[in-house]
């Protein structure tokens, strides 16, 4: 009797906000991942805005084409921005492989394809981290850049570069670790048993966010 009454009410007023279903048509986990990313984008924004404020406070700022002009195994050759272009493409491509993994999980529940694309994503993340390790080593060992001073100009440049790319690199690292765990769970068949590949989608959101942040870190340090 009671249930019938409720049904009639829903039929009369089909608002999404009357309860009983998700008004945003998403699961709790996915919604919370979105809101976590909102918070995380504020952390990155505060870093980048600090960068902007300090940069505006100096008369001159190191030119990116001078600072970032080295390439591994090619000592003495000036190749401005070429190595960071390689890093950027690695990250874009790993985002593409991730979106394909999410796609084949949601649409086909195809375990083999998901494992394949997730593994390629992990590979892309590891290549990016390795490249960043080389770049840092080069700047610290060869150019003697530290947190408080650098040979290129404004002293704050080193502090900002290491903290911001470091914070981003740490996100990539945690992304790689989480991807490894989820790949293992996919391979074991956990999500087939559960009947949903949504976990791949949730870590996918995190991974794309890391790529998204790189767009702005790249813009701030290597282009502007």
């Amino acid at each position: 009797m009671m249930a019938e009454a409720t049904l009639t009410t829903t039929a009369v007023s089909p608002s999404r906000w009357n309860g009983g279903r998700s008004p945003f048509k998403v699961s709790w986990g996915k919604l919370m991942m979105w809101y976590f990313l909102v918070g995380d984008s504020f952390s990155f924004a505060s870093f980048l805005i600090t960068y902007g404020a300090l940069r505006f406070s100096y008369e001159s700022w190191p030119a990116p084409t001078d600072v970032f002009s080295s390439f591994p195994f090619l000592e003495g050759v000036k190749l401005p921005l070429m190595f960071v272009s390689f890093m950027t493409f690695t990250l874009i491509m790993s985002s593409v492989t991730m979106v394909l993994a999410v796609h084949y999980g949601n649409h086909e529940m195809n375990r083999k394809k998901v494992v394949k694309w997730l593994s390629l994503t992990i590979l892309g993340g590891i290549i990016f981290l390795g490249s960043q390790a080389w770049e840092w080593t080069h700047l610290i060992v060869d150019e003697h850049m530290t947190l408080s001073q650098n040979p290129f100009g404004a002293p704050a440049f080193g502090w900002l570069f290491f903290t911001i790319t470091g914070f981003h690199g740490f996100h990539v690292l945690t992304g790689v670790v989480i991807n490894c765990i989820v790949t293992a769970k996919v391979a074991r068949g956990d999500y087939d048993r559960k009947g949903s590949y949504e976990m791949v989608e949730k870590i996918g959101l995190y991974w794309h966010f890391v790529d998204l942040v790189w767009v702005f870190v790249f813009m701030a340090f290597y282009l502007l």
């Binding site: 008004p23 945003f24 048509k25 998403v26 919604l31 979105w34 809101y35 990313l37 909102v38 985002s95 593409v96 991730m98 979106v99 989608e201 996918g204 959101l205 794309h208 966010f209 790529d211 998204l212 767009v215 702005f216 790249f218 813009m219 282009l223 502007l224």
Partner: peptide, 29 residues
Amino acid sequence: IIMSLAKAFFIVSVFMHMKFEVKFLALTV
């Protein structure tokens, strides 16, 4: 700056599927 914002738009709308979510969810983000 404009090109970076365009890239951000592409990543959020297609890669993160925001284009296919409920509009209110997109607005709260």
